[in-house]
């Protein structure tokens, strides 16, 4: 017997709103007038299952699971078109970043598989060298099962190297070794606890 569930598949979590309100970007969550100019402005909207406006609405309803399992939070490219036009000046990109962080901390499976992997990989490369080194990033992020994609990116990589754009050698910055050590130890602690 089919039942019309008012809010489907989620147990509302009243403390979720409070938590999010403490995030950067979350201070004005209750100020949103649900006008939708964010979704209207977003260049990545077509790949989001819910608009940013809807995500904010869900947060206000305490629908934590639903929010953290949207593709929205992972697709945001932080282009700031939304914030520029939001009549309440809500910093949506930084809010999305913080929601992603929460999702990763709570190990909620991401709608876009590559994303949490990407963040972790990026961090690892940075804490190793202090600067980005794409070849290593790619190797960490690449889906080993997608041979075609792997091949395609590898060939792009080689072309980049041949043109002298991407170096064969990773960057080494001796001046920041102390700082990097701190970065590494903090994240290794996190990794061990994961």
């Amino acid at each position: 017997m089919k039942e019309l569930k008012v809010i489907e598949n989620s147990v509302p979590d009243p403390s979720f709103l409070e938590t999010v309100q403490k995030f950067p970007g979350g201070e004005k969550i209750t100020d949103c007038i649900q006008c939708g100019v964010c979704g209207g402005s977003c260049p990545a909207r077509a790949w989001m299952d819910y608009s940013p406006m809807q995500v904010i609405h869900m947060i206000r309803h305490g629908l934590k699971d639903k929010v953290l399992s949207t593709s929205t939070i992972w697709i945001c490219a932080s282009c700031y078109a939304c914030t520029t036009r939001c009549p309440r000046g809500i910093d949506i990109p930084i809010l999305m970043s913080n929601l992603k962080r929460l999702a990763m901390e709570e190990k909620v499976p991401a709608k876009i598989r590559t994303k949490p992997v990407f963040h972790r990989a990026f961090m690892e490369v940075i804490q190793k060298y202090g600067r980005m080194y794409e070849p290593e990033l790619f190797l960490k992020v690449a889906d080993k099962r997608d041979l075609l994609g792997l091949f395609h990116n590898a060939s792009l990589g080689f072309r980049l190297m041949r043109k002298g754009k991407v170096g064969f050698k990773p960057p080494r910055v001796s001046e920041s070794s102390e700082f990097l050590a701190v970065l590494r130890s903090r994240n290794n602690n996190r990794r061990d606890n994961e």
Partner: peptide, 27 residues
């Protein structure tokens, strides 16, 4: 700038570890 490091990368690092991102930028 001698010894500069990654800027903190708007979102790539920030979403993983906000304080690390701020530290990178701040340095």
């Amino acid at each position: 700038i001698p010894g500069w490091n990654c800027c903190g990368s708007i979102d790539a690092v920030y979403a993983y570890d906000p304080t690390a991102s701020l530290a990178l930028a701040g340095r």
